[in-house]
Amino acid sequence: MAVVHEFQYHKPTSLKETLQLLAKQGEKSRLLAGGTDLAVYIKEGLEYPESVIDIKRVPELSKFEVTKDHVYIGANVTFSDILENQKIKNNWQLLWESARSVASVGIRNRATLVGNICSAIPSMDSAPALLCYEAKVHLRNAKGTRQVAIDKWWTAPRKTVRKADEIVLGVSLGKPSDKHAGCYIKLGRYGGEDLAQAGLGLLVTAKHEYRIAWCAVGPIPIRAKKTEKLLDGKALTPALISKAMDLVLSEITPITDIRSSREYRNHICRIMLQRGLEVCNDRLKSKKVDTSRILGG
């Protein structure tokens, strides 16, 4: 398809050069990493930047560090990079499962996690994991750096607190220090790739700390604080899980759209929480559980 909109293309090779470009062009520019969102927007006339700044050649933005306790995901790190990392697969299960649920290989080879949280579509699969791991977003502009806690990052659908002259350097994640298990459960319409109609991230520690996060069921992804409070400090029992399920509707605000109805989303989210908690319970006991068909189908 021919692209009508014309723009300038820049390919800085250093962070300094990138920041200079941003300082000059700010609102009128867009940053390009994987391009799996931006290319669609430009082609369909939804975005028309005057310039596109390709950051793939900036080494500082390609940093990718994984240890047992800490992950740093630079702006250029793709979902495939995350998926192919054995340490993430073994120790950061919720993040790994979230990455696996994104689209398909051909998209994951380009799409970046940072791009995902900057596009900020309410159904973004990376959000629940980042919320549960209490991630921090690292920003920089010509004037300096700052960090934003992930639960303050999104303000509305497609909107973040990033200023026009800022670049997200990367995202850092921390883990609970206690033994824990996690999982990501995603509601799609069938077995193939789909935007989440509801997404649930869970982290449960052996000491009964619970982190629960939703995407696609509200204008921005959220931590389910009421549910976490109910469960905090308690071992999971069917009765307790049932109580938690009853709280779900008080924390999520799904809409009816072309993909799903509010009624169905409300119903499924309760099931997702129940099954997700059961999975985490099993995984805490070192049972191997595959969540790819956890909702059936």
């Binding site: 398809m1 293309y9 390009l32 391009g35 799996t36 290319a39 669609v40 596109v52 390709d54 793939k56 495939s80 290989v105 051909g106 998209i107 080879n109 380009r110």
Partner: peptide
């Protein structure tokens, strides 16, 4: 692209 499959409809040639 560099051995990895990509959607060439979402890549600008200049990249």
């Amino acid at each position: 692209l560099n051995g990895k499959s990509v959607r060439s409809c979402l890549v600008f040639a200049i990249e």
